[in-house]
Simulated scan of single mutants.
Amino acid sequence: MNMPLNTSANISDPVAQARYNMIEQQIRPWNVLDADVLELLTQVHRENFVPAAYRSMAFMDIEIPLLGTDAEEAVRLGHSMLQPRVEARILQDMQIKPTDRVLEIGAGSGYMAALLASRAERVVSLEINPALASMAHDNLRNAGVANADVRQADGARDPIPDGPFDVIVLSGSVVDVPPHLLALLRDGGRLGAIVGSEPVMRFTLVRRTGDRFETTSPWDTIAPRLVHFPEPSGFTF
Rank of each mutant, 00 (worst) to 15 (best):
D36L: 10
P14S: 00
Y20D: 05
L5K: 03
A9P: 00
D36R: 15
S8N: 06
T7E: 09
V37E: 01
Q17E: 06
R19W: 04
V37Q: 00
S12P: 00
W30P: 00
D36G: 11
V37S: 01
L5S: 07
N48K: 12
A16V: 01
A53E: 12
L33W: 06
T7Q: 12
D13H: 02
Q43P: 02
L5Q: 08
N21K: 12
P51F: 14
P4V: 11
F49P: 04
A53V: 11
A9H: 06
N6D: 10
E39D: 11
E24Q: 14
S8I: 10
I27T: 02
N21M: 08
Q43R: 15
Q25V: 04
A18L: 06
F49C: 12
L40N: 02
W30Y: 08
P4S: 09
V37A: 03
H45S: 10
L40R: 10
P4Q: 08
L33G: 00
L33T: 11
L5D: 03
A53Y: 11
R28I: 07
N31A: 09
E39Q: 15
I11M: 06
A18S: 12
A18V: 05
N10S: 11
P29D: 05
V32C: 01
E24T: 14
A9D: 07
D36P: 00
P4C: 10
L41K: 10
N48T: 15
D13R: 00
V32P: 01
P51L: 14
D36H: 14
T7W: 13
N48Q: 15
E24Y: 12
P29A: 02
